[in-house]
Design a protein around this nucleic acid. Sequence first.
DNA 1: CTTGCCGTTGACGTTAACGTAAACTTGACG
DNA 2: CGTCAAGTTTACGTTAACGTCAACGGCAAG
Lengths: 136, 136
Amino acid sequence: MSATSTKSRTYSISQLAEEFAITTRAIRFYEEKGLLQPKRNGQTRIYSAADRVKLILILRGKRLGLSLEESKDIIEMYHPDQDNSHQLQTLIDKIREKREQLKAQLDDLRTMMRELDEAEARCADALTVMKDVTTS
Amino acid sequence: MSATSTKSRTYSISQLAEEFAITTRAIRFYEEKGLLQPKRNGQTRIYSAADRVKLILILRGKRLGLSLEESKDIIEMYHPDQDNSHQLQTLIDKIREKREQLKAQLDDLRTMMRELDEAEARCADALTVMKDVTTS
DNA sequence: CTTGCCGTTGACGTTAACGTAAACTTGACG
DNA sequence: CGTCAAGTTTACGTTAACGTCAACGGCAAG
């Protein structure tokens, strides 16, 4: 039960680029900004499963309108720096704060969807009115 | 029942800027991009209640990570160009599409919040462990 | 050997969304 | 009258997040 059987699959930069439909340039850029720290085989980068997860977090962050800096924070929350873990309470606070932000965003989202519903209803009404008129 | 009693309140650019904690420069920029078309009194801009609503939509869009272009579309959905309303069906389609996007974003949001919950739980565990150790 | 193909590191270009500064007008006030 | 605040236009600067070369190395196939 000692040797962990973590498959420890690795990826090349172009594999990840293709999987997530982004460019290798973007991936290197994320590394440049400190969001990724892949291992190296000589010059070439080797990405672990954990790196891949971080990429997923980055891309989800982007879809939610987060900046790379914010995504970097989020990553820190999921993957706390093991030798830096003495700031656990600080981290918890940051998590709570981020969750408040997300909750606000959720409200915005719901409001916007409600209003879209109303807008569609109004359009639909207008359409039926037009039909009524043209068929009279 | 004929004369509509719409209060028709108006706003100056700095009033809106203060209310929403943005700069006048930003507001003029939104106009430059076609998101607002305030009336004028000579040179100076006069904003209606409808303009104010549009501003709210813009800012909410920003919080959700929308570009100004996208917010412009959203505004069109709420305030269909009256002489342009023959494209009602097209508009309905656009509304449905946008709602799909928002639904996807909602999923992203929920996932991220779930994962933040787990992250916090792990942190809390780690904290209690540390306490256990230090009090033993 | 050379021809691709994949990888690398710079370095510069680009777009969106404003910020900042200059130079001007206009109405209210002492 | 001067000036002061609030408005205007025009123009250039800035930041984030990459895109787009350019120039190079390694290596497997023909």
